[in-house]
Design a binder for these strands. Structure first.
Lengths: 273, 273
DNA sequence: CGTCTTGATCACAGGATGTTTACACGCAAT
DNA sequence: ATTGCGTGTAAACATCCTGTGATCAAGACG
């Protein structure tokens, strides 16, 4: 699965707000006039937009990092409902606006129930459509980041979102972007987080069934944390539930000679091969 | 009977989504028929609803702790726009749906720009309106989770859903995920729960006939509770019915002494079946 | 008092869940 | 191109939770 971290620096996006483009919108439609008008308006508003004449796969949509998707169900055809369900299910953070020709109440109800945010009937005024898109996106963004860029210290751990840097008792931790985001999320949440929740908030979309990425990153985090304070376990596992960050570290009983754990003071990733 | 829990799936939200009315909605309108139909549907869905024939002040709305507000601008009159702006500005967490008679594109655009989440034109199908309300609220709720589950203390028992942890008189109980969920359910319900009900709410699907899992988990719970306070029995068995959590623990007769007489025949046998 | 039904308790096999390791892929910098 | 590094997948391994069946105790009912 393509998961790029295109803009790897400061104002990272995944879990926090996007940098410049006001909005990133894709439109799936086949009416050139409609597309053109919409594109003009979106462009004028400073939104990044992309026109698609056929439905993109879920993976593609994920890769595009959209805020909103406008779709004419007529373009998709008979499997429209499936498509809608898949997209809404997999990208709960995406605003989906169905903009289609005349429809029955039952159809509109069905679409909304499957997760669409709004249903517009063509022909519609572009300005109104834009407002609807913005209204839908507004909701997503409101709770997107309660308080970012505020350095926080939780127990021995200090997190500096502005620098993408974490510290354990003054000592700096060398974390990758994703590791940092997970640590930040865990440290700032004073409760048990389910894997699905961690995934969704860090990756930005729903976790696929059976995905173990979170576990692996937790392991990497634990490993690096252990390299600095070998006797403490900051991340508790709640079997059958998820993980929780423990501000007051639980003391581990390390048998004789911290053997098995700390690979080396250096960072093991470099030595693996 | 083979019971697969294959679909233990996307995290057991069982515990997180119970309690509370599904939605709290207020409707500002003057059409009695419309209000009645809407009230019926909302009631059937388990939503708390309230009808208002004149606009409530912002303060009142705050006090009502609403999830959504449906408003007919005609009821408010000329200062509709001001009102909309005030409400949306002051309660960013409230979903506002304008449901009004015929309007111009300019009006709809203005309403949405001021912060409304959706604009429905009367006459509209109640079912569709409900779907629109739900779609709007869905967005707010997505990241609302952190505060949803609050700690509760029932008698000597304290339940902390955020930590997946329970306490008996300050002392922590080591429970597995399932055990915790059952204890939470019992402790938060002030009544007798049938086995089928417990099973369905914890496991997420119907109990197979003859399944004894609930009994076994109750046993484990009792065992762990007894380990901390040996003289008390928190979980009462109602023969032929189910279980009930007793906030004021029943004192057990240890050894012989005042044997046979168990106090509290509070519930008269509750029909044998 | 005897019998039937329902619940309690126990031990354990099976399997779901979590951990660790190794490696393939793709982007970015050289 | 090549290399390095971060990311995510697959598979082996370790844990320990879960649900079942058997057995025993207790209520219901005649």
């Amino acid at each position: 699965m393509s998961r790029e971290r295109t803009d790897a620096q400061p104002g990272n996006q995944t879990s926090s707000q996007r940098a410049q483009p006001r909005l990133r919108v894709a439109v799936v439609d086949r009416d050139p006039g409609f597309m053109q008008v919409l594109a003009n308006r979106l462009g004028a508003l400073g939104c990044e937009h992309r026109a698609l004449s056929s439905p993109a796969t879920v993976e593609t949509l994920v890769a595009m990092r959209l805020n909103a998707l406008v779709v004419d169900l007529a373009v998709i055809g008979p499997e429209s409902w499936d498509y809608l369900e898949r997209v809404c299910g997999r990208l709960p953070g995406l605003a989906v606006i169905v903009c289609t020709g005349p429809s029955s109440v039952a159809q509109r109800v069905r679409g909304l129930r499957l997760g669409a945010d709004a249903w517009m009937t063509k022909p519609c005024h572009p300005e109104e459509l834009i407002c609807v898109i913005e209204a839908a996106v507004r909701r997503h963004r409101r709770h997107e980041l309660p308080q970012v860029d505020v350095a926080a210290t939780i127990g021995e751990i200090t997190v500096r979102p502005d620098l993408y840097q974490a510290y354990v008792a003054e000592q700096s931790l060398e974390l990758t972007a994703r590791e940092f985001e997970i640590l930040q999320l865990l440290a700032q949440s004073d409760r048990v987080l389910r894997r699905e929740e961690i995934y969704e908030r860090v990756w930005g979309y729903a976790m696929a069934h059976g995905d173990r990425s979170v576990d692996v990153f937790v392991r990497k985090l634990r490993q690096k944390l252990r390299a600095i304070s070998p006797a403490w376990n900051y991340i508790h596992t709640h079997f059958g539930v998820g993980y929780r960050f423990a501000p007051e570290p639980e003391v581990l009983e390390l048998d004789e000679a911290g053997s098995a754990d700390v690979p080396a003071p250096e960072f093991p990733a470099a030595l693996t091969r």
